[in-house]
């Protein structure tokens, strides 16, 4: 891998992050609007909507991985630490929710919320650690 500086790595991350988030928002809003055109959503449309929503998220996950590869060693350490703690909190919360479902304390839980929950846990961890390694 070609060596890139911290600034270059950060720029490469940010250049892709906002367009991908814009695509994600457009997919959700556009999907909701288009969905109103159908009496019953056709199956092909639901597959298309799923792909349009998920692909930008996969893009964000990819650029996060690339940023961790390319950034400087201190930022990498801070990012990985925040991600690890965020993942542990998310797995813990998912386990609690899973058992609550098993014992019928709650009915259903929208699984897609796990990813935003992870991002919140990861973001809060970075802030709490307060070492300014944020993107």
């Amino acid at each position: 891998m070609a060596h890139v500086t911290f600034k270059q790595a950060k720029r490469r991350y940010q250049v892709w992050f906002w367009p991908l988030m814009a695509l994600y928002t457009a997919a959700i809003l556009g999907g909701t609007l288009i969905s109103k055109q159908f009496e019953t959503d056709p199956i092909w449309f639901l597959y298309l909507l799923t792909a349009a929503t998920v692909l930008p998220i996969f893009g964000v996950l990819f650029i996060m991985w690339r940023y961790i590869q390319e950034t400087d060693e201190f930022t990498r350490m801070m990012q990985l630490e925040a991600m690890s703690i965020g993942a542990l909190i998310t797995v813990g919360a998912a386990t609690v929710i899973g058992f609550m479902q098993l014992f019928e304390l709650i009915e259903t839980f929208p699984v897609f919320l796990i990813l935003p929950f992870f991002f919140v846990s990861y973001g809060v961890t970075k802030l709490v650690r307060g070492k300014g390694a944020c993107v």
Binding site: T5, F6, K7, D72, E73, F74, T75
Partner: peptide, 26 residues
């Protein structure tokens, strides 16, 4: 200094304050 080394300013601050020990290459 961060610019010359291609690292973040936070890295330099962490090294200076003894919160982070750099790798051998750095």
């Amino acid at each position: 200094l961060a610019e010359q080394l291609g690292v973040s300013r936070q890295s330099i601050n962490a090294i200076e304050t003894g919160k982070y020990d750099p790798s051998l290459p750095l």
